[in-house]
Amino acid sequence: MKKTALLAVILTGALLILSMENFPSWGDVQSPASLHLSRHFIEKSYEQTLTPNLVTAVLGDYRGFDTMLETVVVFTAALACFLVIRLPRDVCTPGLFYYRHTRTGLVVRKHDACELPGENPTFERVDSDWPPHDVVVVSTCRMVIPFIQLFGLYVVAHGHYSPGGGFQGGVIFAASYVLLAVSHDLRTLVHRLNERVTHLLSAAGVLLFFGVGLFGMAMGLNFLDYGALEGVLGMSLASGHSLGILLVEIGVGMTVTAALVIIFKLLSSRGTVTEGL
């Protein structure tokens, strides 16, 4: 098997290398790839969209439909994980309940949930008898997480002027929640962002994107034509496009955050959304 694989791989590689013969050489300014489409994008996109980050401009506007589908892909991935591994609720309810004494860290195991009140200051409900992270990690993370989230928002909003945008910002935002789950436990994360909220958020993000597109249609233009925003808000055409890109990026950010959180929650808890990594 390994030898066949190696042979197949080497053959494929050789063929690919051979077919590179006529490529323009590295970094050629006059190659077709840098002339035809990209020249137009580089030279025209700022005046058409008022977005200095060419990547964001092309991503959000010229190829906005691609981006919408990319968001849909992330949304799909979340749904797919949900469909594939989410266990039914009744299976998720464990037979055992764990309560930790907040002072000493001692864990009490109970067979029935009703015996301890939920809002007991001396005991807290935990998912299992795993020892928690110690105070260094927990408090550092508590300190850092808001900062990361703020940064995530910044990346979403500042995508026009610097690298970044909805997707990167959304991932950073989601990463902050992953950090929360890792440093505390998954219950804390679920408490902050429960399943319903994440799902609604992921759908809402795509819907925002979609809504911007539909707005274009409602104004008599084509789907995803941000020029429609111009008339409503009394801006110039280019700034209408810029605003459109911003709205779209926000939608992307929402979906990506929610979707990645969903995926992480499901994967790390094997579909029970109780105890995780």
Binding site: P163, Q168, I172, A175, V178, S268, L277
Partner: peptide
């Protein structure tokens, strides 16, 4: 390719690894 690098940093280093760890954990 700053935007791509940014995305790759966010995805590859952060989320992808975390997801993979979660899967291995389970």
């Amino acid at each position: 390719a700053v935007d791509v690098a940014f995305t790759e940093a966010a995805i590859g280093a952060g989320i992808s690894t975390a997801l993979m760890l979660a899967a291995i954990f389970r």
